[in-house]
């Protein structure tokens, strides 16, 4: 592996705090939806949690800037769980 001399990275506190505020806002919105019977729709809630999920994975875990290979490994895990869920629901007669 080649020696790379990194410049000292800049202080990113503000950047991360902004992201965290966004996450907290989505969480608040989710709870708000929970108390609003008209909008308490599973798909919407799952969609919101997926957004939160991707923000944490992409920015806090730096997956956005990561090697392709790592992205591949990570998403194979998701790929696997989809047919698994379908079969399970099939089994219970939910589909």
């Amino acid at each position: 592996m080649k020696e790379i001399i990194h410049p000292i990275p800049k202080d990113q506190t503000k950047y991360y705090v902004n992201i965290a505020i966004l996450l907290a806002g989505i969480t608040f919105f989710e709870v708000y939806l929970y108390y609003t019977p008209k909008w308490n729709i599973p798909i919407l809630l799952i969609f919101l949690s997926l957004i939160k999920f991707s923000i944490v994975v992409g920015y806090f875990m730096h997956l956005k800037y990561e090697n392709k290979l790592i992205k591949l490994f990570y998403f194979i895990g998701f790929l696997l769980s989809i047919p698994w869920l379908i079969i399970l629901f099939f089994e219970r007669g939910l589909l």
Binding site: P42, I46, L48, S49, K52, F53, V56
Partner: peptide, 11 residues
């Protein structure tokens, strides 16, 4: 994040 939505929030 996922558990909170799926277990707690979804009716």
């Amino acid at each position: 994040i996922v558990i909170f939505t799926i277990i707690y929030l979804i009716p």
